[in-house]
Design a protein around this nucleic acid. Structure first.
Length: 478
RNA sequence: GGCCUCAUCGUCUAACGGUUAGGACGCCAGGUUCUCAUCCUGGCAAUUGGAGUUCGAUUCUCCAUGAGGUCACCA
């Protein structure tokens, strides 16, 4: 059994969105599971579309998600270089073999002439086939003209690890371009040569290549090589509409999710679950579980829609499962300015209180600000509160003063505060909905906060009494 | 238009001829002495349509419909 070798072969034309990263993820999963190798290769044969910085960004994205590769442009490997523009002599050599066999020829037409053929075909509502216009005699290829594959049209049927048995007729086979007039190979040619030379065993790629496969099979035959195993991944669809996820339609860079404070393991779990499941009802998987349980047979054949709500839920679930110390270490960079002078013990305790309501780290400042600074008293919190709005400020003030007196004598342990809060319900004769809302608003000035006694205990006596006084002042003035 | 692929709740999916078609997200309702969240309970919600094959079809076959892809000197 040959060692499994998979590759991710992006063109450096921009960032990596969820659709792109999934192809990489599945290739990586298979390699890891089979103790094989995962290779990164840059397919930079279209110089016009290349984007500066894209290579670094791609590498950064893979590393951030933990998809480490064993061979690649920046780390080398036994089949270096791993950048297509540095491998032109390889493509030339194979092109010459094809020419020698009479299976490749120079395309003498100008771009305009080919376009005219194409327009004609379209006008006749026919698919365009270059081979219908294949010249009888062709000039010697001098590198200034495109080099085309001389195809041998025939029907094909083949096996796809995801899609199953596939077949097409000879009408889809055409003379595609192997090497462009600028000297660079096309993807269609280059990837076949590279996959062969780099001993790739499994090709994972998107559905958009499905209709090219018979042409590749025709070329494999001409080259007398055995094609790798093919696994065609369905598209990931954009949240709105049925179009495949694309940058144009607002697909986000995967690194944007990291910047918002999503965990890499959430992205791995979530993206894997878009089109794959293990056949059970399990929803949450650790990265190593996904590696163990992954299989191409369980990859869905239809496209999946990206659902950000589900991603949020999953990240929240994973955050809740994280030991507090880990959570603290991993959320460090998301804490608000105002928290920077606070003791790390205090911050850790705050984190413990908000852990179960955190969906992604970017929410931390909003969820925690009142733990670090006194927010201005907001009368709207009372006047719009369902429980409090029916009482006069005078009534509220009286109850709050009673509470303050009791808190004055408290040691501010959560246990003591709980006991006092219960007693205050009796002394004021109020329902928890009224009294606790009042205290919560006074001590936090936030529309929502964790459990009252715990929150107050953490805030401490000095802060709580000061804030209650501020609230009392406003109640008096109004 | 030709060719190819796909089709289960709104979404992600399970059921590889026999289930009251299951789970999860989201949504709604209730509970957990206030809020938000967590947790628990319950609810709403799907096999695109039509023919076959079969004792029996979500599942197999055919047709229709719908959706996507492709027909570049882009990948």
């Amino acid at each position: 059994m040959k060692t499994v070798r998979t590759r991710f072969a992006p063109s450096p034309t921009g960032f990596l969105h969820v659709g792109g990263i999934r192809t990489a993820l599945f290739a990586w999963l298979l390699a890891r599971q089979q103790n094989g190798q995962f290779i990164l290769r840059f397919e930079d044969t279209d110089k016009k579309r290349e984007v500066a910085g894209a290579r670094e960004h791609l590498i950064d994205s893979l590393k951030t998600l933990g998809l480490a590769y064993d061979e690649g442009p920046d780390i080398g490997g036994p089949f270096a270089p791993y950048t297509q523009s540095e491998r032109l002599e390889h493509y030339q050599a194979w092109a010459q073999k094809l020419i020698a066999k009479g299976r490749a020829y120079a395309d003498p037409y100008s771009a305009e002439e080919v376009q005219a053929f194409r327009d004609q075909a379209r006008a006749n509502k026919q698919p365009f086939l270059y081979r219908n216009y294949r010249p009888e005699v062709t000039p010697t290829w001098d590198g200034t003209m495109p080099l085309r594959f001389k195809s041998d049209p025939k029907p094909y049927s083949w096996h796809d690890a995801v899609m199953g048995e596939l077949s097409t007729g000879p009408e889809v086979i055409d003379d595609f371009i192997l090497i462009k007039s600028d000297g660079y190979p096309t993807y269609n040619f280059a990837h076949i040569i590279d996959d062969l030379e780099m001993e790739i065993t499994h090709i994972m790629r998107g559905q958009e290549f499905l209709s090219s496969q018979p042409n590749y099979l025709n070329l494999y035959e001409a080259l007398e090589i055995t094609p790798p195993i093919l696994a065609t991944m369905p598209h990931i669809l954009a949240e709105n509409g049925n179009k495949k996820l694309s940058k144009r339609d607002g697909a986000k860079d995967v690194l944007d999710y990291i910047r918002d404070g999503y965990l890499p393991e959430t992205l791995v779990n979530f993206i894997a679950s878009l089109g794959w499941n293990d056949g059970t009802e399990q929803e949450l998987f650790s990265v190593s579980e996904v590696i163990t349980k992954f299989s191409l047979e369980h990859v869905q054949r239809s496209g999946a829609r990206f659902d950000e709500k589900r991603l949020e839920w999953m990240n929240g679930a994973k955050i809740r499962d994280l030991p507090l110390a880990d959570l603290a270490a991993r959320s460090q960079s998301f804490w608000p300015e105002s928290s920077h002078q606070s003791a790390s013990d205090y911050k850790l305790a705050v984190l413990g209180l908000i852990q179960e309501r955190l969906k992604f780290f970017a929410e931390i400042p909003q969820l925690t600000e009142f733990f670090f600074e006194d927010l201005p008293v907001d009368p709207n919190l009372i006047t719009t509160n369902k429980q409090l709005k029916k009482y006069t400020f005078t009534e509220l003030k009286t109850w709050l003063e009673t509470c303050r007196q009791s808190f004055e004598a408290s040691d501010f342990s959560a246990a003591d505060l709980t006991e006092r809060l219960n007693r205050l319900l009796e002394t004021t004769g109020q329902k928890p909905g009224v009294l606790f809302s009042l205290i919560r608003i006074a001590t936090t000035q936030a529309p929502a906060s964790p459990a009252l006694a715990e929150t107050m205990a953490l805030l401490g006596k000095e802060r709580c009494l000061r804030r209650i006084d501020q609230q009392l002042t406003v109640l008096t003035a109004a």
